[in-house]
Design a protein around this nucleic acid. Structure first.
Length: 589
RNA sequence: GCACCCAUAGUUUAACGGAUAAAAUACCAGAUUCCGGUUCUGGGGCUGGGGGUUCGAUUCCCUCUGGGUGCACCA
């Protein structure tokens, strides 16, 4: 379905043209003065200069032309030269009926040319628990992915594990220290390695920090870890088997954690998967004359004439010849292009890495790792701060494990629900979990991703105000009304959404009609916060309508049925939106 | 030192270059309380300061102040 804004615009554009004005002045926008009108066009003021006449002369003529157009209830030309428009309620109702006929998409057309878009988010390290720093990437990335999917694109989420480098050597070294008799350390061993990992996730999470601590104090220990890293990277069988165990154990745990967040990835690739592509890539960069030695390191210049800031060269290899983060990220682009040839890759990463990614992107483009038309997008997010405005920490000042954060909020939400009314413990827990997730995600996503934001548990978990729970509450309330209606009667034949009977009903309908435009904007601007803003307005419009309308007491059967259809449509819109945001509504709460 | 980002009610956040800058929350005053958050009304803002572009600026440009961040062998 065409966006309602475009339908309106096309009429106004036509009116401008028919009166001899350029079509560019006919652009219609949403009114920012809802007390005066629903849609507006400010083109007359801009056109005044070109046509050398007072703006209202133009708006008057256009308004006169549009009088009688069945799309509008009223068309007013106001003071300096505003064109104020109100939609015909019947026209609006017909638009909603078309949305209603398409319950999966509500008239939001899938894009005509689907793209393959890879999205790199998550970025956890193996053998280390997720902490709050991983939260934003997971939440934002998942939502961006779902929005893209809804718009019809092929979205491929890649977790991009941190599974390469010294950390692996450290773990291996510590394991050897504790249990040198394991077959993995016997270089003469040629048999099959055990399927069972010689450690649990709990042990792994303890081994890594221990080893990391030791290496900082003990030079010999560090040497050993580096040696182990080297051997691992050069194909020592026992170590490779260990790496596989570490990965398996870790990934299983990560999957469980992400599942609790309603986050999933199509690909569980890691930095290690990129390593095989490094030698050829580096060689080619050298052969093509892009890479050269600078201060001993191999680099590619990426500065451009238009730069206002200094962009240092992109380092490909360290002066000791070893690879680094850049190398891995570039090689990752290599396999992504080879395996998926994406039209676009989006990186959902802490915004502090912006300069770094600028270098990587430019380097990839310059050296031909990607096609000229392949888009590389950096979606940098801000820091999640505590109420004091400083980065979120535990009371002791350490990094908080994500699991703890989530279970704390689950608990808080459970208390809130249990206080409100009596529920079975099991059901209450389940509901609390669902609602708590909405609190966390909505609290995050309602902010612009690039900005820092304050994680305020009190506010986010409130059932009032601009929060996830409030949205869920509204959905649950609609469900409850629908159930009540269905318990009493069935929808009569020919039931359909009717022209609005009241201002609040029309306001709700107008809000619903914005659905497809909103979703498209959210996708194009990779802006989940627009979805949040929309459902908040929609929920408010519904609650306002609900409060002013006695639905169950309505005498006219068809009017009542129209209300029910409107409620169903509202419910669908809200449900689709929270789904793309990455959470869901319970049956009751 | 060089550069980038941010600055909006007490607080947390919105606003394709457009009218009287919008919500939430907190607070104060009043009314209402019949289907699951009671609801409604009213009160409070020189968009950090100063310039400029424009018919018109929170938005674009310059500058100052204040905060954050980044500046090759960490990821």
């Amino acid at each position: 379905m065409e966006q309602i804004l475009n339908l309106i615009s096309s009429q106004v554009v036509k009116a401008f043209q028919e009166n001899g004005y350029d079509e560019k002045y006919g652009k219609v926008t949403l009114s920012n003065r809802p007390d005066l009108c629903e849609y507006q066009c400010n083109g007359a003021m801009a056109a005044a200069k070109e046509y050398k006449c007072a703006p209202f002369m133009i708006s008057d003529k256009v308004a006169e032309y549009l009088k009688g157009n069945e799309m509008f209830e009223s068309v007013d030309s106001v003071k300096p030269g505003f064109l104020n428009l109100k939609l015909n309620p019947e026209y609006l109702a017909e638009y909603l009926r078309q949305m209603d006929a398409d319950p999966q998409r509500l008239g939001c057309n899938p894009c005509e040319h689907p793209k393959t878009i890879m999205i790199d988010y998550g970025g956890p390290n193996v053998a280390k628990p997720l902490h709050v720093g991983h939260l934003r990437s997971a939440i934002i990335g998942e939502s961006v992915k779902r929005i893209g999917k809804f718009m019809g694109h092929r979205m491929i989420g890649d977790v991009h594990l941190g599974d390469w480098g010294l950390q692996m050597g450290l773990i291996i070294t510590e394991l050897k220290e504790r249990n040198p008799k394991l077959v993995y350390f016997d270089e003469s061993y040629t048999g099959e390695y055990p399927k069972e990992a010689p450690f649990t996730i709990g042990e792994l999470e303890e081994i890594y920090p221990t080893a990391s601590g030791k290496s900082k104090e003990d030079e010999a220990y560090k040497e050993a870890a580096m040696q182990a890293t080297y051997e691992l990277q050069h194909g020592r069988k026992g170590y490779e088997a260990l790496l596989e165990h570490i990965l398996n154990v870790s990934v299983n745990d990560l999957k469980r954690n992400y599942k609790d967040l309603n986050v999933s990835f199509e690909l569980w690739k890691g930095e290690s998967d990129a390593q095989p592509f490094i030698p050829d890539m580096v060689q080619k960069m050298k052969d093509d004359g892009f890479a050269y030695l600078s201060e001993g390191a191999l680099v590619v210049d990426v500065k451009e004439d238009t730069d206002t800031k200094e962009v240092p060269p992109c380092m490909i290899l360290k002066s000791d010849g070893a690879s680094l983060y850049n190398t891995t990220d570039l090689a990752t682009i290599v396999w992504r292009m080879k395996d998926y040839d994406p039209d676009k890759i989006i990186y959902v990463v802490d915004k502090r890495q912006e300069l770094y990614f600028t270098q990587v992107f430019r380097c990839a483009r310059k050296t031909g790792l990607v096609k000229p038309q392949t888009e590389l997008e950096f979606l940098g997010f801000g820091t999640m701060n505590g109420k004091d405005g400083k980065p979120f920490k535990t009371r002791e000042g350490g990094v908080m494990r994500l699991e703890y954060l989530v279970s704390n909020i689950n608990e808080e939400m459970y208390q809130k629900i249990a206080d409100n009314h009596t529920v079975e413990e099991a059901e209450g827990r389940q509901t609390a979990k669902i609602v708590a997730l909405s609190a966390i995600k909505y609290g995050d996503l309602s902010n612009q991703a690039s900005k820092d934001y304050v994680f305020d548990v009190e506010r986010f978990t409130s059932f009032e105000g601009n929060t996830g729970p409030y949205i869920l509450y509204t959905i649950v309330r609609i469900k409850s009304i629908l159930k009540k209606y269905q318990a009493e009667k069935t929808l009569p034949k020919g039931a359909k959404i009717l022209a609005a009977h009241s201002d609040s009903e029309k306001a709700l309908m107008l809000e619903l009609s914005k659905f497809n435009g909103m979703m498209q904007a959210a996708f194009e601007e990779t802006a989940p916060h627009k979805v949040c803003a929309y459902i908040y307005d929609l929920a408010n419009a519904f609650n306002h309508f609900y409060h002013q309308t006695k639905i169950m007491a309505e005498q006219d059967e068809m009017v009542q049925a129209g209300y029910i259809r409107l409620l169903e449509l509202t419910k669908r819109a809200l449900e689709i939106c929270i789904d793309v945001l990455g959470f869901e509504a319970p049956e009751r709460m």
